[in-house]
């Protein structure tokens, strides 16, 4: 008999071990000293079959009489039906030198993994009768939006925006540095680490500098707010300290700007300044749509 089988059996059926013990005890009482494993198993098998038969039969009688759980009578009926005499059974059960089998140790019930619970269960409302089952987990009945919630933490947003901006700038300048002439700050041949894009003379030189493109301003809007800020009718006359008059030539009030303004602006930069990249982006976009 191989070990594995043994293991399997012991592991598979603790009940069978109890039956084993029962058979062995009866054998000892009867006067055997030892038993062959095979015969023991056979006897155990017979016992198990017998018990199963009795159980099934008893259940049949029980259900026949409209009950859920069998009672003693059902078992008696089953035994009788099987042709087993019940006489002397009581005496046998109370025989003086009988062995008592220790009840099997209660194995800790293996924990069934809890259902995925989310949130705390709500207490049933007072109008719901107490006998009704408790409410299921909240996720089962509350409405959850299907898209991902955006991160709302200020710090993280700023961090992310700054990193993104920097990455774009880096990529852009790196690309340009690789595709155009560069100045070298060192005497070395290669100019990989800190390349400076070479400057090109422009004519007239003042135009790009007086009309800068680093930021896109809506001048009409600025103009409007400038006018608003400079109106004097409804501003209470300020108390003017003799020496601390601050003149604000361009005082403007705060205006709210659409949320997506900055990204929008960035796109504009790119598109204005870097048509190649723009084309690439557009192509990607189209491809994406095609795939979808």
């Amino acid at each position: 008999m191989s070990e594995t089988t043994e293991k399997f059996e012991s592991a598979s059926d603790a009940r069978r071990r109890v039956l084993n013990i029962a058979v062995s005890t009866v054998l000892l009482e009867t006067g055997f000293d030892a038993t062959d494993k095979m015969s023991l198993e056979t006897l155990t098998e017979i016992l198990q079959c017998f018990l199963t038969e009795v159980g099934n039969s008893a259940k049949g009688y029980c259900e026949l009489s409209g009950r859920v759980e069998p009672v003693l009578g059902d078992i008696v009926m089953a035994l009788i039906n099987m042709g087993i005499s019940l006489q002397g059974l009581e005496q046998y059960a109370a025989r003086p030198n009988r062995h008592i089998i220790q009840p099997p140790q209660q194995a800790p019930a293996p924990k069934t993994p809890a259902m995925l619970s989310a949130g705390s269960k709500a207490k049933p409302a007072p109008h719901i009768p107490f006998h009704l089952p408790p409410l299921p987990d909240p996720h089962a009945y509350i409405r959850t939006p299907t898209h991902k919630q955006p991160v709302t933490e200020y710090e993280a947003i700023r961090e992310k925006a700054a990193t993104q901006k920097r990455d774009i700038e880096k990529a852009l300048t790196k690309f340009l540095a690789k595709t155009s002439e560069t100045h070298n700050l060192f005497n070395t041949e290669d100019n990989q680490v800190f390349p400076l894009i070479a400057c090109k003379p422009t004519f007239p030189a003042y135009l790009p500098c007086l009309l800068p493109t680093d930021q896109v301003f809506d001048f009409d809007e600025l103009e409007y707010h400038f006018q608003v800020a400079n109106r004097t009718e409804d501003i209470p006359t300020e108390k003017k300290g003799k020496f601390n008059i601050i003149y604000k030539p361009q005082l403007l009030p705060v205006v709210s700007v659409p949320n997506n303004f900055s990204t929008h602006r960035w796109t504009v930069y790119l598109f204005v300044t870097f048509p190649i990249l723009y084309n690439i982006l557009m192509t990607l976009q189209i491809l994406k749509f095609a795939c979808v």
Binding site: L172, T173, A177, C209, P212, D214, Q215
Partner: peptide, 29 residues
């Protein structure tokens, strides 16, 4: 490049970045 200290490298990187960026996005004056 290798003889630069770590701090100097950071400083130089920042300077080259903004200087290069000015080529595409020139600021006022």
């Amino acid at each position: 490049v290798d003889s630069l200290s770590a701090d100097t490298k950071l400083v130089l990187e920042e300077i080259t970045r903004v200087l290069n960026l000015e080529k595409v996005l020139p600021c006022y004056k």
